[in-house]
Computed example of a mutant assay.
Amino acid sequence: MRLKTILYCLFFIPLLFGCNELTKKTKTIKLAHGLDTKHSVHIAMLKMSDDLYKLSNGTLKINVYPSQQLGTERECLELLQIGSLEMTKVSAAVLENFAPKMKVLGLPYLFRDREHTFNVLDGEIGQELLDDGIQFWLKGLGYYDAGSRSFYSKDKAIHSPEDLKGLKIRVMESVSAMNMVRSLGGSPTPISWGELYTSLQQGVVDAAENNPPSFYLSRHYEVCKNYTLDEHTVVPDILVGSTHFWDALTEQEKEWVKIAIKNSVKYQRELWLEAEKEALTEVEKAGVKIIRPDKTLFSDMVTPIYDEVKKDPEVYKLIQRIKNTK
């Protein structure tokens, strides 16, 4: 009889009092991206996962899938659209194919400096851009720092736009990126990030462009021994959620997710500054020649892009608002 009483107390009493450990269910959020596990964005995402789990008392959990495990950036966006994936990280350049206003962020020499960049992205304009993909089932959730993009080349060093002539340069699947390379005299060649190392090795392309941490962590410096810091574009990484996933969350759950994202973004931006310094130091140790050109040689060459943008009044207005942001 005593044994029955003990079993009753152990099993039924917690149920009567609504024991959280027995009744709570955990919602799992799948988050996929194409970056290396050492990248600051991935590390910040792990923090976001931990923070969200604690904030939600274990009812929300993020599983992070790095290194294109679930597909390329474009493929992950398509998975979001059909509701097969909850969140992903993509470059703003790739997102412009789904959210038209995003192409403004691919314009060369748009921002004055780092402070100006984040004043824009964290303000009204940045939110407007994040919301532009909602009609296509894509909800922008925040901006990670991806620094400035610069050219790196296999054989021919790039000191001025003249040196880009005749070079096949890998770009993202972005109209803005292709227009920018053409305006500087190069031949843009869209290739997925995961295929780029081999493409450089085999001579499919002669050069590429990206920020220092990506150049370093991808080990592209093993193939390309020239890195030209012309810093032509500042294209942020964007955390994107499926509207199917977002709309299914309760208001409380949305608040927890927003807090976790905000903490993650702040943390990543701090990590980024150190990652940039480390990347440049390490690639130089590995024999890469760091070239610091006269940037005006490059910025003067892209003026026709801005003239062309005037034909799109909506984007041109955005440019003026960005330029006037303090």
Results as ranks from 00 to 15, higher is better:
R2L: 15
I6D: 09
Y8G: 09
C9Q: 13
F12N: 10
L15T: 00
T23R: 08
K24I: 01
T26R: 13
K27L: 13
K30N: 13
H42I: 06
I43R: 14
A44V: 02
M45N: 08
K47S: 12
N57K: 15
L60G: 01
E73K: 07
E75N: 10
L79M: 14
K89F: 14
A93P: 00
L107I: 01
F111M: 15
G123N: 02
L129Q: 05
I134G: 05
L138K: 04
G142F: 07
Y144F: 15
A146Q: 10
R149T: 09
Y152S: 13
H159A: 11
E162K: 14
L167Y: 05
K168Y: 12
K168N: 15
K168M: 13
R170S: 15
M172A: 15
M172E: 13
N179Y: 02
V181P: 01
R182W: 00
L184F: 10
T189F: 04
P190E: 10
S192N: 14
T198F: 04
D206L: 08
A207H: 06
P212T: 01
Y216I: 00
H232S: 04
E251K: 14
K266W: 00
Q268C: 09
Q268V: 04
E270S: 08
L273A: 13
L280M: 13
T281L: 13
V283G: 11
K285M: 09
V288K: 04
I290S: 07
R292Y: 11
D294H: 10
K295F: 00
K295N: 13
S299V: 00
K311Y: 01
D312K: 10
E314F: 03
V315I: 15
K326G: 03
